[in-house]
């Protein structure tokens, strides 16, 4: 009887904690369980300073995906950013990807501006039009030291 109640207590403990682990890994850690409901498109930027995996991807201010990874394209030294876009969101092939900052010193995120093309982007294809992050420090120094 006694060892039974002990086992129950351990069971409850493990259950509660596993729920927390689940929340942390799946909800916050964005762990993929089973088949993914996103597709990947790539975009190359001259600078992806401040952008990191997990950052949001928005169209007209609505989140449609996340940055899956940021890596270096060794050939022409561009930042190659993989975007995981929700499957139900279709993107035209003339879409423009730009890196924006939320607020003056906030996080970086990716803003997608759709064009008018009817051709859809497939999983693994590349967005050709990109706009790099605005370097505020550079802007300020240009303003201070002239040359704008």
């Amino acid at each position: 009887m006694k060892s039974y109640s002990k086992e129950t207590a351990v069971g409850i403990f493990v259950l509660i904690c596993l729920l927390c682990v689940g929340y942390l890994t799946i909800q916050l850690g964005k762990m993929q369980l089973g088949s993914s409901n996103t597709y990947i498109v790539y975009a190359k930027f001259e600078s992806a300073a401040g952008l990191r995996a997990g950052a949001g991807v928005e169209i007209a201010g609505v989140p449609v995906g996340k940055v899956a990874s940021v890596s270096l394209d060794q050939e022409n030294y561009l930042a190659e950013v993989a975007l995981a876009i929700q499957k139900d969101v279709e993107l035209g092939d003339d879409i423009i990807a730009s890196i924006k900052t939320s607020g003056l010193i906030g996080d970086k995120y990716i803003k997608l501006t759709p064009g008018g093309s009817a051709e859809k982007l497939e999983n693994g294809s590349e967005i050709s039009d990109t706009e790099s992050a605005v370097d505020i420090e550079e802007l300020i120094s240009k303003y201070v030291f002239g040359g704008v």
Binding site: L24, L28, K30, M31, G54, A55, G56, Y109
Partner: peptide, 10 residues
């Protein structure tokens, strides 16, 4: 919380 925490942190 959702946007700032990534798997590496967890």
């Amino acid at each position: 919380i959702d946007t700032s925490v990534v798997m590496a942190d967890v």
